[in-house]
Design a protein around this nucleic acid. Structure first.
Lengths: 338, 338
DNA sequence: TTGTAAGCGTTATCAA
DNA sequence: TTGATAACGCTTACAA
């Protein structure tokens, strides 16, 4: 509870001198500094960052805005792993993280700018929000630096981190093509996700390059959810029994697809090959283990925080965005068609 | 960037009146209030919580201290799920979360009290720390309210949330006993975990109740880590081939044990029955699916935040701690011995 | 019902 | 090398 005032009194100097001594300014007599530091220790002083932030107008705090941070996200460790990366990168440079968890109900009450201003965060990292989220427009208008995870918006103070989703999808489809598949369906997420658009693009491009016509009816949405994907895949496979392989825009949805296949009596990979996306932890443990496209989630978070803190300190020089590589991980859910 | 000063000027009143109007005090003329609220909206005002916290000496912030928040924790969703619960409970009552991630290197630089005072958190939730962590003593001494997850310390301002680990372990062992096992080993975590002590107690008690002598050499530590557990279990099973069942203090370790069994050519559950603890997501997907003791991790977090905010507002009335029930989840990793 | 003024714990400007 | 003093944006006695 000791303040610099207390120290000043105890050490017989002014608060100014205490402040300067404790902050390592050079214009303080060595003896005085020593005495001040000692009394600070004696009084178990620790600075009040609130007061400091107020006067300096810098909070050394980053807001972490995760849309619907909830149990449902528990299954793919995506959010968590990204967070770990963010946390590590932020704490490396002395920033603390404040967690805003919003949902649409809360968003109605409080605008993005309000949220940030209130807590005086210096910058924001946004994760798990959809393309049509009203906050995105606010972010671009506002002058609070922000880095998005998996939404490709850029602006003066806005950047993003993502992986090469087009290429990732191409690798997945090429793998299927190489195995001899030609009737390849796709279970996508939803139209409001940046990654869905990109993965679809990769899927279509690879097919086109191979001279295979694109069939709209082979593409369905599973909302990035396991049960929804199961329903969608079930219907798709029932309507189009000629399909021998499915590319899923997420591992979680691939899980649902596996369930649908089981219900239809289809063996994996003999009757149906499945490729996922994300390489979530679970994908290694399914039966059979899932072939998928790996994304380095931790790195995404780390990079996001790094970009943001760079904007904050350098004043926004160099890169604002980053696209990370991803890799095909071949496991046992894919095989040549019968 | 508008402040109450700006509003005061624009609305032609004093800052006091603005403050009172915006905070819903009754002693403000309805007309004046309306005018003030309108100009606040016009100016896109949002309060500066830093300034407010400073003067009120209340930050409405909870510190979340997770020891070694890192990728290694990614495999069990424990940390994440608890966090979701904390987040939901905290935001229900208008508290924000600030993430402190410490590791021993940082702890040396900064004491617990310093950390909290600096950021002026009103209370703290601590997760993933060991019994011998130096912070624990600090917490008890300090007068900052704190709730621990899975460490049973109590004090004037200190409580904890845990599950009934003794009973959980008893259920696990009883299940094994009922199947006819008598040579039951235990892969524990380490001596610095509260839960390890409790689970061991449950294991020993149940065995004793069944008239089976406790054999020290049947108990080994796996540090709550998969590879360590694999090594420990491998050695144990090699030295004591008569063991037909293993109770593991965590699912993650059970995964390692399964690997060890495989390497030894033991089939699960025919040659070796395994029971885990936690019911992590993965346990459902292993081959075979793991019998385990479920803990409601989300609820633990929710309860922790609830206890803490109650302490903060009521001034520490009623309960300070909570012990949640857990349930045996029987899957396919257990069977009668041959 | 409204306003004046003090104060929260810092840092920054300026003068000594 | 040091110290008054103002300022950051807000709340709150106290007075009017």
């Amino acid at each position: 509870m000791a303040t610099i005032k207390d120290i000043a009194k105890a050490a017989g100097v002014s608060v100014t001198t205490v402040s300067r001594a404790l902050n390592g300014y050079s214009d303080v007599n060595a003896k005085t500094r020593e005495r001040i530091e000692q009394t600070a220790r004696d009084l178990k002083y620790s600075p009040n960052s609130l007061a400091r932030s107020l006067v300096m107008n810098k909070s050394r705090t980053i807001g972490l805005l995760v849309s619907e941070l909830s149990r449902s996200g528990a299954k793919d460790m995506f959010t968590y792993e990204v967070m770990c990366g963010i946390n590590d990168a932020a704490s490396d440079v002395g920033y603390d993280l404040i967690l805003f968890s919003t949902n649409s109900a809360k968003q109605k009450q409080k605008s993005y700018t309000q949220l940030c201003r209130e807590r005086q965060v210096e910058g924001v990292i946004m994760q798990g929000i959809k393309r049509d989220d009203p906050y995105i427009a606010e972010v671009i208008e506002s002058n609070i630096p922000c880095v998005f995870v998996d939404v490709d918006v850029e602006g003066e103070y806005v950047g993003y981190v993502t992986t090469d989703n087009v290429f990732g999808a191409q690798m997945a489809v090429k793998h299927l093509l190489n195995l001899g598949h030609t009737k390849i369906g796709m279970i996508n997420g939803h139209d409001y996700a940046h990654v869905s658009q990109k993965r679809r693009k990769g899927y279509e491009r690879e097919l086109t390059d191979a001279g295979i016509p694109i069939r709209e009816e082979y593409m369905v949405n599973g909302q990035f959810l396991e049960p929804e994907a199961e329903i969608a895949a079930f219907a798709l496979l029932q309507d189009h029994p000629e399909i021998t392989a499915l590319f899923c825009a997420s591992d979680l949805m691939a899980l649902g697809v596996m369930r649908a296949a089981k219900r239809l009596g289809l063996r994996i990979p003999e009757d149906l090959s499945i490729v996922g996306f994300d390489n979530i932890l679970l994908s290694e443990y399914t039966t059979p283990p899932l072939t998928t496209v790996n994304q380095d989630k931790y790195q995404m978070g780390y990079e996001a925080a790094h970009l943001l803190t760079a904007m904050l300190t350098d004043g926004g020089s160099e890169r604002q965005s980053a696209t990370l590589d991803n890799q095909l991980v071949v496991r046992e859910s894919t095989a040549p068609p019968r």
